[in-house]
Design a binder for these strands. Structure first.
Lengths: 226, 226
DNA sequence: CGCCAGGTTTAGTCTAGTCTAAGTATTCAT
DNA sequence: ATGAATACTTAGACTAGACTAAACCTGGCG
């Protein structure tokens, strides 16, 4: 089994991000995500299919096989361990570690990865709140929803930051929107797209656009508690 | 100025290793070192010359320009910082860190490299005893000689381990031949190539072959004056 | 003084991954 | 039902970096 090229690893990762359970993903969506032309995607899917990492029916999109998913989850594990390392050990801010992890995940050997993981005591979550798959590829799944989908009065806990845009994450961090933060929705105005929430006693007003990627866990007991 | 490809970085590093002060290095020597065919070397030297990183006169070999040497020293710095990190922080043995550093040196960003360097307090030497160039590319030069060149009765201190062969380094380490170790030459028999030395009170007998790459600093006042 | 052996360079090919241009299939609206 | 818009695939070409085969110096020896 030849080791996968960086490019192939990237395709599998993208496929996993867009269809984690083996849902079909169409060419253009993949092309967009990987910043590559559609023909390149078709071409690469052909190769991945030949290696039984995906199935590819013309015009019906591609889906990960079990084998392909294993590879993808492995990359996710690497990425998250590296981000955690960059933050916890090297002291970077979690808003600025994505790109370095993105490169290193392809080049670090298993032994170095495991040594880093051991050094940190096998963390279960990365700095953005994402669960880190274990060595056997199992991912703890949680039931989260976008903060922007909450209704007025709802309370919730921020769990994950799904984004790769540094400045935006830095802004969230500054306003207290970090994993673990308690939030309450004070006002939702669909008309002019205004979202007003309370984070640790502070009021924050924004458009729903500004919350894209913030995933929360709803507080039990419904929107009218306490 | 486009960043250099991994391959180009490797060529420059090899050129530096074989002719650190800009001495001419012939095609075949480079080909051997890089495990690549001679035509590949000629081809690549053409490109490096076009970028003013080397000068290349047909059949006279190539030599690094100042610019090329800067790049090469930068790679050496990266390599040595990474090896130090793998040993000091991740707990690897110095006999087994070369290969990982070899890959990572090409892919780690400046900011991560500097963060690692800071974390370790800007070490001056790597685990094999090699000086780490500073950020401006200055290398502290020392006056060392091969252990195998010492004469009977000479005393010296081991300073550098110039090798990339893991098992061999592990053997040295086990017999106490590590940077800083004091050695005394008890016997040299050129005829049957036997070298008998004393390391920390222990006697070690070997062929001169088995000492290739061990660099020492002669003790002052010893039999090997000047 | 010439010629052979060696290493060096030229020439042409291969692979992986990308691209653009053009062709084909599907879907949607009239 | 048919044509237009959209999306996917095919075809062909480019790049970097490697390779092999063959041509080309050049130096040493007869």
């Amino acid at each position: 089994m030849p080791k996968l090229s960086r490019s192939k690893q990237d395709y599998l990762k993208a496929l996993y991000a867009l269809g984690p359970e083996g849902e079909a993903v169409v060419t253009s969506r993949l092309a967009l995500r990987l910043a590559v032309s559609p023909p390149s995607v078709t071409h690469m899917l052909g190769q991945l299919a030949a290696q039984r990492l995906v199935t590819h029916a013309p015009r019906a999109g591609a889906r990960l096989t079990a084998k392909g998913r294993r590879e993808a989850v492995e990359m996710v594990r690497r990425h998250r361990i590296l981000e955690t390392f960059l933050v916890r050990v090297l002291g970077f801010d979690w808003s600025e570690v994505h790109d370095d992890a993105e490169i290193l995940e392809h080049h670090i050997s298993d032994r170095v990865l495991e040594a880093i993981d051991r050094l940190m005591g096998h963390p279960a979550e990365d700095p953005h709140g994402h669960p880190i798959p274990d060595r056997r590829g199992r991912v703890r799944r949680r039931d989260l929803e976008p903060l922007s989908s909450l209704r007025r009065g709802a309370r919730a806990t921020v769990r994950e930051i799904r984004d790769a845009d540094g400045p935006r994450m830095a802004r969230w961090k500054q306003t207290g929107l970090v994993p673990g933060a308690q939030v309450r929705v004070r006002e939702v105005r669909a008309l002019d797209d205004v979202f007003e929430i309370e984070v640790g006693g502070k009021r924050v007003v924004t458009g729903s656009e500004g919350l894209e990627g913030l995933m929360v866990e709803s507080a039990k007991g419904g929107p009218r508690g306490q």
